[in-house]
């Protein structure tokens, strides 16, 4: 799932399949190491949904998105079949190409 091909509609269509059951949480390494639920897959799905739907995100949310290991453990647990880690990776591109654009050289 290469970032530039994913529209906001696709993010929302796929991530709203999440029923927030939390099965993904027990396998997430970063959630086990951090206290905030935002550091788990369910929290990251919420971050993406709120960012796209309402334009709302926080520094903690941003850090959580870039602290995902993209290890794919959550994907093995999702009853809805959402490739959670792939959407998190693509959302990094979404952020970088919009408000979170770093002052890169060349572009």
């Amino acid at each position: 799932m290469f970032g530039e091909r994913i529209s906001e509609e696709v993010f929302m269509r796929e991530l709203l399949k999440c029923s927030f059951c939390g099965f993904c949480e027990w396998v997430c390494p970063t959630l086990k190491a951090e206290e905030s639920r935002l550091y788990g897959p369910r929290g990251r799905v919420n971050i993406i949904i709120f960012a796209i739907k309402d334009g709302v995100w926080t520094d903690l949310g941003l850090r959580s998105i870039f602290n995902c290991l993209v290890c794919g453990a959550c994907n093995t647990q999702c009853p809805a079949g959402i490739k959670i880690s792939e959407y998190i990776r693509s959302f990094r591109y979404y952020l970088i190409s919009r408000e979170f654009r770093p002052c890169f050289i060349a572009k």
């Binding site: 970063t30 870039f66 602290n67 290991l69 993209v70 453990a73």
Partner: peptide, 16 residues
């Protein structure tokens, strides 16, 4: 069902 070593975020959050 392997558990990640933590390596992919070593440059972003080395302590985590």
């Amino acid at each position: 069902l392997t558990f990640c070593c933590g390596g992919p975020i070593e440059s972003i959050s080395p302590t985590l």
